[in-house]
Amino acid sequence: MHRAKVPVSRAPRGVDSKNRVTVSLMPDELERLAKRAKLENRSASSLARLFIVAGMDAEDGRAPSAS
C-alpha cells in the first residue's frame, strides 16, 4: 500500500513562500554557498535566507535571529 507524499515546506513557519528574492552570484560564490549548505545539511536557499537576515540584523545593531 502506497501513501501519497505530503508536500514538505522548507520555509520557516510564518514565511509566505510566494515572496521570492532572486540573487545572482558569481560561480565561486555559488560554490561556496553550496558547500556550506551541504555541511550544515540545509538547502542553499535556507542558508542564503539566514545570511540575509543576519546581515540585516547586524545593520540594525540587533543580535542575530535564531531562525
Score class of each variant (00 low, 15 high):
A48Q: 02
V53D: 07
N41V: 06
V53C: 04
V23I: 15
E40Y: 06
A54D: 15
E31T: 13
L47P: 06
V53H: 01
D28N: 10
P64H: 04
A4G: 04
P64W: 02
S43G: 09
S46T: 13
F51G: 10
A11N: 02
L30S: 10
V15Y: 04
V8F: 04
N41F: 02
S46L: 01
H2W: 07
D60T: 00
R36I: 03
A58R: 15
D60E: 14
K35A: 13
E29T: 08
A34H: 08
S67H: 11
A48D: 04
R3E: 12
E59I: 07
S17A: 13
G55R: 02
V15N: 02
P64E: 03
S43L: 08
A54T: 07
L33Y: 05
D57G: 01
I52L: 15
A44V: 11
I52M: 11
D60F: 06
S67Q: 10
S67A: 10
A48N: 02
D60L: 14
S9E: 11
S43F: 03
S45Q: 06
L47K: 05
H2E: 12
I52S: 04
K35M: 10
S67M: 12
A66H: 06
L47N: 05
A54G: 01
R42P: 05
P27E: 05
S67W: 13
E40R: 14
S43Q: 04
N41P: 00
I52T: 11
A63L: 10
R32Q: 14
K5M: 10
M1K: 09
V8S: 03
L39V: 10
S65A: 15
K5A: 13
L39M: 13
